[in-house]
């Protein structure tokens, strides 16, 4: 249950977006209700002044006010919010940064580790908990996408390109990932697992201990 849920975040990036979702939902609901009330009120019984004489006043209210000023204000605020969050999530230098590689193909993931050259795992990505991790994503055949919903948003694996996604897990544990760009008949089972280790276990992993994959 909830293993792929974006609204049950387990890392800073996913947490920011989960909060964002609730903000967007509340704001949208208010706007929706506002528009519906205006719409319903149009049907009330009344003797409205008919004729173009009153149109310029109406245009000021309905078009310049509600049509232009209202959305421009709301959207400017929203855009700023989105850009600030986007900026915060972008990969930036960090003293504790860990770099891993993720190479997709139909239909497996091969993971590599900058701190342990030569080390490969298949369909299981090991990371340290509580530290930012840059995933360098690419593919050997068609387009795939790397997505661990509880940790961060997704990023595509494009042939010939390397895309870098910043992820981080707050706590040690297992987090489910899926490929989320349609990739043919095997697409449904394009799953992988991210295992976040406590600091000691991570060192052990890098040293090649206790791993039988």
């Amino acid at each position: 249950m909830d293993t792929l849920s974006t609204v049950h975040p387990a890392g800073p990036a996913a947490a920011v977006v989960a909060v964002m979702w609730w903000v967007l939902l509340v704001g949208s609901t208010l706007i929706f209700l506002f528009v519906m009330i205006l719409l319903a009120a149009a049907f009330r019984q009344r003797s409205a002044p008919i004729g173009p004489a009153h149109d310029s006043g109406r245009e000021r209210l309905w078009i310049m006010g509600l049509g232009l000023a209202f959305p421009l204000t709301v959207l400017a605020a929203l855009l700023a919010y989105g850009l600030v969050v986007g900026e915060r999530l972008a990969p930036k230098p960090h003293p504790d940064l860990v770099t891993v590689g993720a190479e997709a193909s139909q239909w497996t993931w091969r993971f590599t580790y900058a701190d342990a050259p030569g080390r490969e795992t298949w369909n299981v990505l090991h990371i340290p908990a509580g530290r930012p991790v840059d995933v360098e994503i690419t593919t050997t055949d068609v387009i795939h996408a790397f997505w661990v919903p509880r940790l961060a948003g997704k990023l595509d694996a494009i042939p010939g390109h390397v895309n870098v996604l910043r992820i981080e897990a707050d706590e040690p544990g297992e987090y489910h990932g899926v490929s989320s760009e349609f990739s043919g008949p095997g697409y449904r089972n394009r799953r992988f697992l991210v295992v976040a280790h406590p600091a000691a276990d991570w060192t052990a992993f890098l040293n090649g201990e206790g791993m039988d994959e």
């Binding site: 149009a42 309905w62 049509g67 232009l68 959305p71």
Partner: peptide
């Protein structure tokens, strides 16, 4: 992203022009 949010403005102009038309008429 800015362009994508901006496109909501002309849409809003039309939606409110329509609702204003309903208010204007019967």
């Amino acid at each position: 992203s800015a362009a994508s949010t901006l496109v909501a403005v002309p849409t809003a102009v039309q939606v409110f022009a329509w609702i204003g038309t309903l208010w204007k008429g019967q």
